[in-house]
Amino acid sequence: MKHLIGSIFFGLILLFVFNTFIKKDEENKSIKMPPPEERINFSPRKIVGVPARFAAYERAVDPHLAEVRELALSLASDCGIDTECKVARIYRFVQEKVRYLSDPAEYELIQRPERTMALMAGDCEDLAILTASLLLSLDVQTELVAIPGHMYAMACGVDPKRLYDMVSAEYRDAGSGFSKTFTLQNGSKWYSSFREFRKRSSFRIEIESSADADVYLLPEREELDRFLRRENFTYMTYCSRENIRERTLTCDIEPGNYLAVTSDERSFVQVRIISEIKNRFDRIRVYNRNGVKCIPLDAAIKGEMVVPGMESENAELRDKSFIPLIR
């Protein structure tokens, strides 16, 4: 009898363990992870050198995929052997067309390039992997650059001056800047600051008004406050006009300046402020990697005023890893 009870008890334990295993297995199967991605634990530790964790990113770069090659060739169809043309076309496509999409909290999903192309979205690592894959498929020497919490691609063997000329032509009619339409009446006022620019920059300012309007470039906040209070104020004459309805001004503007518009009549006004292409090239960086000039391509930086060579503020960190890629 004791043996029988012991056998029954042991059998119940085995049945419980078996059911628990089956339930866990079904739960795991219900979690659908895209097959092209690798799922790794996220660690906030500092990155030093090129640790083994970057192997997954290297494996994800694939310039030999048919869809990658087809897209790269279509983007650079008229570039021939011009490396700078290839870099400009590939970067502009990823930076402008592929949106930024964060990973789930506490995990990093590493997408292969075909997955990012299918979604037309990914985080900084995914955009870097796609950029690198496209460039390598066009035989452009490429590396990945990693800093804590961020990654981007870098094109090497590039002539910065030729790239400047190429991007100047590519972006000339891109309309970088912003347009604002508003209504003024009975002496109401509108203004805009230039705080996002860190140094003196050149702008083209286009103004259209249905009635006479006054446009002033004010040197500082104190003068703006006087302008808004209808007191006497100081303005910069080279970029100010009164009683205009349509005018285009080209002005060098400091970060602390303000552009202000007013009218004594009811008027519909459109102001378009366009950053000259040279402003953006003041912010690019060139790396010398073993005697070869390289340009960072951070496609995760979004916006109309972004060009190849720009880096985020975090890229100033010295804790930076360079990951060479082989085609």
Rank of each mutant, 00 (worst) to 15 (best):
A155Q: 04
A118E: 15
I301Q: 13
A299G: 07
S312K: 15
Y287Q: 11
C79A: 04
T262M: 15
M154I: 06
C294I: 06
N290R: 13
D252W: 05
Y258N: 10
K23S: 10
P219F: 06
Q111A: 14
T183E: 14
M305K: 05
E37L: 14
V98L: 08
C251A: 13
R53F: 09
S202Y: 11
I277K: 14
P51N: 07
V17N: 08
V307G: 03
V17T: 01
A153R: 06
K189W: 09
S179F: 02
I129T: 03
E26G: 05
A213L: 05
D82F: 05
V261D: 02
K24E: 13
F281I: 01
V87I: 12
E37Y: 14
L65H: 01
F178Y: 15
N28G: 00
R39W: 07
S179W: 00
P113Y: 11
V87L: 15
F197V: 05
Y235Q: 01
I5N: 08
P160V: 02
E125A: 11
F10T: 07
R39Y: 06
K24F: 12
E208C: 07
I295R: 00
I129K: 03
G6Y: 06
E114I: 00
Y171Q: 03
D103V: 15
R318S: 05
C85Q: 04
A155Y: 08
F93G: 07
Y238T: 13
T183L: 10
K199V: 10
K24C: 09
C156A: 11
E106D: 11
R69Q: 10
V61M: 02
V94G: 11
S176M: 09
D225K: 11
N279P: 05
K278D: 13
D212V: 00
D252K: 10
Y258D: 00
S321Q: 01
R221Q: 11
I22E: 05
A146N: 12
S137I: 01
V145R: 11
V140Y: 04
P219K: 01
T142Q: 07
T250E: 12
I326T: 15
F21D: 04
R318P: 01
M151N: 00
V68L: 10
G49P: 02
V158P: 05
D82L: 03
T237A: 12
I90Y: 00
D252R: 06
T116R: 04
V292Q: 12
L325N: 03
P113W: 10
Y100H: 08
I253L: 09
L163G: 03
L163R: 14
A174W: 10
H3S: 15
Y57N: 06
